[in-house]
Simulated scan of single mutants.
Amino acid sequence: MTLPPHRTPPEPSWRKPVGMLLMLLYIAVYAMIVGLASGWLTALPTPLMVAAYLVLGVAWLAPLRPLLVWMNTGRWRAGR
């Protein structure tokens, strides 16, 4: 039994596994950098330390957007 052309599943992309490995590598490096900076961060007053950890806890997401776009489209920038 063959599927009609409009129901044929797309070919698997190599970009998704490669992108996942790059994401894991990026997160590991980012975590190491934040871990190395933790000695300096703990010397800050508590409100500044909390603010720094909040910023650092969210800041890792922004650089991943182009990678996610590339994984899904094959281009580094999202189409407008």
Rank of each mutant, 00 (worst) to 15 (best):
P9K: 04
G39N: 11
T42F: 09
M32N: 13
H6K: 11
M32T: 13
A52K: 01
M1R: 13
L48S: 02
G79V: 15
P63M: 07
G57K: 04
Y26L: 05
M23L: 14
L68R: 14
G35T: 08
M71I: 15
M20D: 10
M23R: 09
W76R: 11
A31R: 06
W76V: 14
R65D: 08
L56N: 00
L41Y: 03
V55F: 09
P66Y: 08
L68T: 15
A31Q: 10
R77H: 07
L24F: 15
P5M: 06
A31D: 06
P47G: 00
A31C: 12
W60F: 12
A37D: 03
I33M: 13
W76I: 13
R15N: 02
A51H: 00
M49P: 00
P47Q: 00
A37R: 02
R75E: 05
V55T: 11
A43N: 10
S38G: 05
G79Y: 08
G35C: 01
W60Y: 05
L22D: 03
L3E: 10
T8P: 00
L68P: 00
L54E: 00
L36R: 15
L61V: 15
G39C: 03
P17N: 04
P5L: 06
L41A: 09
K16N: 07
A52F: 01
I27L: 14
M23Y: 12
W70M: 04
S13Q: 02
V58E: 01
V58N: 01
R80A: 11
P10I: 09
V18Y: 07
E11K: 14
L21E: 08
L67H: 02
A43I: 05
V34I: 15
M23W: 12
S13C: 03
R80D: 04
L36C: 11
G74K: 04
L21S: 12
A78T: 10
L44R: 04
